[in-house]
Design a protein around this nucleic acid. Structure first.
Length: 336
DNA sequence: GCCGAATCCACAGACCAAGC
DNA sequence: GCTTGGTCTGTGGATTCGGC
């Protein structure tokens, strides 16, 4: 299947137009190697060899050229590779990850990860995509196969998002979370839309949803790959009630909840919010003379006023007779 | 009883249009 | 430019039914 990745690896076709030293967007050379500028033409290359330039320096230049063009897969020490500056995952299922570890152990790393030179830490790299593969290699030991490209922040997150889209790798809520994080970091909607491959309407809904559900709850539930917009929107609706929100946040501390898989955790919270009703809030209404002839009982669905048969029976009957008058007064006041 | 095809249903996600 | 409601389409799982 063709990938939408804008920054896909290109085959070895055209010769690069210029062989000037390749620099990152920050002006720092790839691999941290700096060299004096040299002519790039074949004549220049010949004269270089004639001049006795060391083979090592030439090889470094060639590697840097190829790396910047994304044409070379190189092997990196995984300890030199940092995660993307925007986290796109809400945790990885241990079973899935162990499957990936077994697969790589058996067949080797078939697909390289994409990294860029770290913009802030010389000599290190930052992942655009391939976080799970990197984690697996770190577990197994050895070097990680990587393509190094000189990417801006925007290119990195678009590349990161598109790779995930291509493999339908992220769940709905992870995509929402990723989108919200990108917006928080100041990326424009256009960039985020490109990264996630969604339209503005979908993006708007995704970001709005993350804003409505407390982050600790999303993080506790995790990716929940079986559940999409509709079900998460239902949870968002339900946690708008403070009592339910607090109940859900309290429940995520539960040991059984923590032990469950992400989909099950979603279902547990969903069921908890769906079926649980607030305990009736009962308050005694106190008259100016200090007596309490009525109790007001409020639930999610009803408000009841109960009159005490002993002290409030007559008052209750009076209120009953006055209901029509009260209703008309209510209509006058509210205009309903 | 088992298996495969057909059908139904719920859900996810994309698209469109209207409104703010 | 963003949000929201409505609609449509594709997909996967469950169920039913007929043939063996």
């Amino acid at each position: 299947m063709a990938r939408k990745n804008l920054f896909e690896m290109t085959p070895d076709t055209a010769e690069p137009e210029a062989a000037a030293p390749v620099r990152t967007t920050l002006g720092r050379p790839l691999l941290g190697l700096d060299r004096p500028l040299r002519p790039a033409s074949p004549v220049g290359a010949i004269s270089q060899s004639l001049d006795g330039i060391s083979a090592k320096a030439q090889r470094a230049e060639e590697i840097e050229k190829r790396l910047a063009e994304g044409q070379a897969i190189i092997e990196l020490d995984p300890s030199l590779v940092d995660a993307s500056f925007v986290v796109d995952r809400l945790g990885v299922d241990a079973e899935d990850q162990s499957g990936l570890v077994d697969q790589i152990r058996e067949h080797g790393q078939q697909v390289p990860i994409l990294v860029r030179p770290h913009p802030e830490r010389a000599g290190r790299f930052q992942v655009a995509y391939g976080h799970r593969r990197l984690a697996a290699i770190k577990e197994i030991g050895g070097t990680v196969k990587a393509v190094v490209r000189d990417l801006t922040d925007e290119q990195l997150i678009v590349s990161q998002g598109q790779e995930n889209n291509a493999r339908t790798d992220l769940s709905f809520i992870e995509r929402c979370y990723f989108a919200a994080k990108l917006e928080t970091k100041g990326f424009g909607r256009e960039t985020i839309m490109s990264s996630l491959g969604v339209d503005k309407a979908a993006l708007s809904r995704m970001i709005a949803l993350v804003r409505r559900v407390p982050s600790p709850l999303i993080e506790a539930i995790g990716p929940a790959p079986s559940f999409g917009r509709q079900r998460w929107a239902e949870i968002a609706d339900m946690v708008e009630e403070r009592a339910k929100r607090m109940r859900a946040l309290k429940h995520v501390e539960d040991a059984d909840f923590r032990a469950a898989r992400s989909d099950a955790r979603f279902q547990i919270i969903f069921d908890l919010l769906k079926i649980s009703k607030d305990k009736p809030r009962v308050t005694a209404w106190t008259a100016p003379d200090g007596t309490s002839p009525a109790k007001i009982k409020e639930t999610d669905t009803a408000l009841n006023i109960a009159f005490d048969k002993r002290g409030g029976a007559q008052f209750g009957a009076f209120v009953e007779r006055k209901l029509l008058t009260l209703f008309e007064e209510f209509r006058k006041e509210t205009g309903d």
